[in-house]
Design a protein around this nucleic acid. Structure first.
Lengths: 159, 159
DNA sequence: TATTGTTATACTCTATAACTATA
DNA sequence: TATAGTTATAGAGTATAACAATA
């Protein structure tokens, strides 16, 4: 079933054949996601925040009193890997830990004012980044893209 | 502009608030891409191929005689990082190196029959994986998704 | 026994700097 | 000088195993 690959007549530089990959939606999904992540990194760089620490901080801001284990479950982090992330966010004064009166194993995490302000600033920059990322798309195209992407990643719910 | 975050009335486990992230197309782009990559890894696992080595091999199969540097430019790899990938593919007998008579610095890379057969098998599995990934989408929705994703990652061409 | 927070560790992927040989 | 292939190395990100305290 192997397609017969005849010798290629020397493509111009930068014009290599990519037939199969270009056919796959997954290929374009990956390239778009890479561009998104690079833009996110650039947008957050001057705030000394990367994507995962920001999502941790955002979880604390949107869910005051949440525990580290719950954050890990919500965003798919291993418990071991959130420790250093929390240590740095705490050292920067972005949240506080408080003992849970109902369960002495858990620490309840609360954002500080500084943490909430930094989060708000970061989210503004993410919005600007997204506007730039999607500048070639109309408003209805953006909505359609989001709708289709949700169907893609939620497709494993019925598995 | 910081949205006032009132204390949350204790969400059920697994129901943490994710308002802002869920609004971003980039969030759904990332989750869809993660599901795609996990499915790809699973689909290729029994062939002992991962995504990047496969794309390198595919470049050789589709562009016989291509150089390592040209592969790197085409798929965004650093030259240093293709060395071990090529070493393993070569050890498995999937391609051969040949001196370039026009430039003694470059090695021209040619797929072996085994390399072409393994690539064909891998591409079949990728196709099956993609069908599963997109099973919630109609044919026209898949075409529309690909079109929109191309506009997203190609949006940096005019920068 | 199960869970929380934690340490230690390892593996993958990616990034940079420097070398050599050729052009 | 610029490029091809290479080596060494460092940094993220992510993975598992094990521990003490608590439920």
């Amino acid at each position: 079933m192997a397609a017969p690959h005849k010798t290629v007549p020397k493509p111009e530089p930068g014009e290599e054949r990519l037939e199969f990959l270009a056919d796959l939606v997954g290929y374009h999904l990956r390239r778009a996601s890479i561009r998104d992540m690079q833009g996110m990194s650039a947008a957050l760089e001057s705030l000394s925040l990367r994507a995962v620490p920001l999502s941790v901080l955002l979880m604390i801001v949107e869910n005051p009193g949440i525990s580290a284990a719950d954050i890990c479950r919500a965003i798919g982090l291993k418990r071991a890997n959130i420790v250093s992330i929390l240590a740095e966010l705490e050292q920067r004064g972005l949240f506080l830990r408080e003992a849970d009166p109902n369960d002495n194993r858990v620490q309840k995490l609360f954002p500080t004012r500084t943490g909430k302000e930094l989060t708000a600033e970061a989210l503004e920059r993410l919005k600007d980044h997204e506007d730039h990322l999607l500048c070639a798309l109309s408003g209805s195209e953006r909505a359609e893209l989001r709708r289709l992407l949700m169907k893609v990643w939620q497709g494993d719910e019925g598995d």
